[in-house]
Amino acid sequence: MKRKRLTLTQQRSLTGYLFTLPFIIGFILFFLAPFVQSVVFSLNHLRIVTGGYELIYNNWENYKHALFVDTNFLPTFTQTLLNMLLDVPAIVFFSFFAALLLNQKFKGRLLARSIFFLPVILSSGVIAGLEASDYMANMMRETANVATSFLSGPALTEFLMQMKIPRELLMYVVNVVDRIPEIIRASGIQILIFLAGLQSISPSLYEAARVEGASGWQTFWLITIPVLSPTILANVVYSIIDSFLAPTNDLVNYIRSTAFGGAGFGIGTAMGVMYFAAVAVILAIVVGIISRYVVYQD
């Protein structure tokens, strides 16, 4: 028996396939197939028959229904996407800022870090959902809100308006300030990612800058920001993804109740496909814009 011996490169590449094989199989069977199926389902009327289901092509009827007949879908759809677009910048800014703080040396840093990451554990949809309808929580929120509502107070808003700050920007800021607690609680992982990025910056870069006489401000803009730019991109993408995985996402809940609540699998799936398409377009645009400014070190 003579076995053909593989070259080292071939061996390495074969091992690579072996290691990644579980995912390749799983991706095809449990992801790609259902993904293609949902696109097919969204174009058909789906009926459960004994021992399976059958599909009847119905010429974009599901999409037409979702867009023109269903009065709730479109408003929920635009509102959800709008909320996402508003929240993501706020989350990225906040988590960047928080990571800068937590990266400094001070007493109690470990404790502060574990508190800042706590929302990763606690941001469960169930608890957030209960909170919204909870009597005690609402009562207590009234008192807690005093702490954060100073900026949204009418007097201050009026004052800032007079300072000729563009109205849209101002309304955005006021809106964000109102939602500070939600934004902080949605930032756990992003802080973690930024902190990891900050710690991976080689100290020699900062030393060199100091020798050259750069100020802290210059160091920040010319070293920290460029080196972190891939991390910023990763965090923007993660925040977008995270917002549609959140169980508090209204659109997702609406799609679900449509699919399993009588209106039909086909219509629910059509809504899901449209949602995915919208998210994909947003991601493509955002990544396209940001990656122009991203600097890769090597």
Partner: peptide, 13 residues
């Protein structure tokens, strides 16, 4: 796999 909302595929799944 990360950017596709699982809710979109829930019926086929």
């Amino acid at each position: 796999t990360l950017i596709v909302p699982p809710q979109m595929m829930m019926v086929p799944l």
